[in-house]
């Protein structure tokens, strides 16, 4: 079993505009990824783009696995054109994972936009603990995986920036209202979150206000994904840490936002 492996594309389906669901079949045995782990994927065997791209594991299907991604540049654009039967070179699973649940905590999952990618995989492993889920997107079309969450017995609280579904506004404000409505003493909540930078910053402030513990999965440009290039660092209360190695999941109160 090697973390450097090839996988063939089973399906690469556009789910909404610019968003794709990629199903891969590893051609070698690979380690079972845990929610929060990521893979470095070579979108093509070429010099431009040169580097592999990091993608978090979306769903583990036993042997095959899925990546949910958005076309954001040249690399993901090439990836979106890969067809069933194509072979991709991949390294992984890499990085750390969302930590296991402490029994006396109630989990609140928070996803913003494509941050749902690792959160759904997490939901699949912890749904027996009946976590809450707060999920926001720009518009209702960009709310992915709602049916999957419901089929796991998780009814997400939803918001959209344009008000096209759920509450109008951002999901952190919705969560704040919910937390404020809880009678003291508040349950021991623990946040598990992934989403864009501004959402995570707001969530960090919220965690401070309500004295909540939590973990956030970060995204960062990477060259190697293995911990050697030191290119993907994030500033923390304990100095610069590598998102690929000490992360991508960090305690929410550890990250220093600049």
């Amino acid at each position: 079993m090697s973390r450097l492996f090839k996988a063939s594309v089973i399906e690469n389906r556009q789910v909404i505009k610019n968003h794709f669901l990629l199903t891969l079949h590893p051609l070698d045995n690979i380690g079972k990824p845990r929610p929060g782990n990521f893979f470095m994927i070579s979108v093509d065997n070429c010099l431009d783009p040169l580097l592999k791209r990091p993608f978090s594991i979306h769903r583990w299907l036993g042997r095959d696995f899925q990546i949910l991604y958005r076309v954001a540049g040249k690399g993901t654009s090439i990836l979106s054109n890969r067809k069933p039967g194509d072979t991709l070179e991949i390294i992984g699973p890499l990085g750390n994972a969302f930590p296991s649940l402490r029994s006396n905590n109630k989990i609140i999952m928070v996803a913003g936009g494509l941050g749902i990618a690792p959160i759904l995989g997490l939901a699949e492993t912890i749904n027996k603990y009946r976590p809450l889920c707060f999920y926001g997107a720009r518009t209702h079309e960009e709310l992915l995986c709602i049916d999957e969450l419901i089929s796991l017995g998780i009814e997400p609280v939803i918001s959209t920036d344009d008000g096209s579904l759920g509450e109008k506004g951002n999901i952190v404000d919705v969560l704040k209202k919910y937390l404020s409505s809880q009678l003291p003493p508040p349950p021991r909540f623990c946040l598990y979150a992934c989403g864009p930078g501004p959402m995570l910053i707001a969530l960090s402030d919220l965690a401070k206000t309500f004295n909540l513990k939590g973990y956030i999965a970060l995204e960062q440009n990477m060259a190697c994904g293995l911990g050697t290039c030191l290119g993907c660092v994030v500033n923390t209360t304990d100095g610069y840490k590598r998102v690929c190695r000490e992360g991508p999941v960090f305690p929410i109160n550890e990250v220093i936002w600049e």
Partner: peptide, 23 residues
């Protein structure tokens, strides 16, 4: 040495720029 703030790397055609700062 603690190195430079992020972002420290970016990809460019057939290569990459880095400013790790000798961490």
């Amino acid at each position: 040495m603690k190195g430079n703030p992020d972002p420290r790397i970016c990809e460019t055609p057939c290569g990459m720029l880095n400013a790790i700062g000798l961490q």
